[in-house]
Simulated assay, not measured.
Amino acid sequence: YGTVGAVALDKDGNLAAGTSTGGMTNKRYGRIGDSPVIGAGTYANNKSVAVSATGSGEMFIRTSAAYNVHSRYTHLGENVQKAGDAVIKEIGDIKGTGGMIILDAKGNFAFPMNSAGMHRGMIDSKGVPMTAMFGDEQLRHFKAK
């Protein structure tokens, strides 16, 4: 149910991104969301960033959201948080909602969103998992029950 996205940086400096979604409830027949559109819901470039997005797919497509993060990072020199926040604002300006997970080639990450929440998590360099759900919530160590 819903979108599952992942971004990764391997020991050789390779970035990867993947996005899968169950789709939108009551979607129009033939609708294609942003997840399979490289540059909208998913993008990775070893020289810049890996991005996976979720939300109002049409708005992510219209803004080329994932590629736009790469462009802002590469051409404007913005860090992952600033680039992601700017793209999410652009999506919000056209009445879209959602969020992204972003990772750069240096290991910096961001989870910009304009929705109330987005399940997200990461594993740090020591293998410790961390999670968060709500928009204003900081990542915290995951404790299995």
Rank of each mutant, 00 (worst) to 15 (best):
A40T: 05
P129G: 07
A8E: 06
Y67K: 01
G135T: 10
G92D: 03
G2V: 08
L139S: 02
A40P: 07
S20G: 11
M133A: 14
Y73H: 14
G30K: 10
G55R: 04
A17F: 08
F109Q: 11
V49C: 06
G99C: 08
G18W: 03
I102M: 08
S64A: 15
K106N: 14
I94D: 05
G92A: 04
F109V: 07
L76Y: 13
F111G: 04
R31D: 13
D10A: 09
V4T: 14
K89W: 00
G107T: 08
F60L: 03
G135C: 07
N108G: 09
K47D: 15
N45Q: 07
T131D: 04
G99D: 11
M113P: 03
M24L: 15
G2L: 12
G33T: 02
M133T: 14
E137A: 08
S48N: 06
F111W: 11
L15R: 01
Y73S: 03
G33A: 07
A116G: 12
D10E: 09
M118A: 09
M113H: 10
V7Q: 05
V128I: 15
K126N: 13
K145F: 08
V49H: 05
V4F: 15
I88W: 01
T21M: 05
R62A: 06
I88F: 01
S48W: 02
D124I: 02
K11V: 12
R28E: 15
G92N: 10
A110T: 10
T74L: 12
A50H: 00
G39K: 01
G84F: 10
V87Y: 00
T97Y: 12
N68V: 03
H119C: 09
P112M: 13
G84Q: 02
F60H: 04
E78F: 09
F109N: 13
Y29A: 07
G135P: 01
D136Y: 14
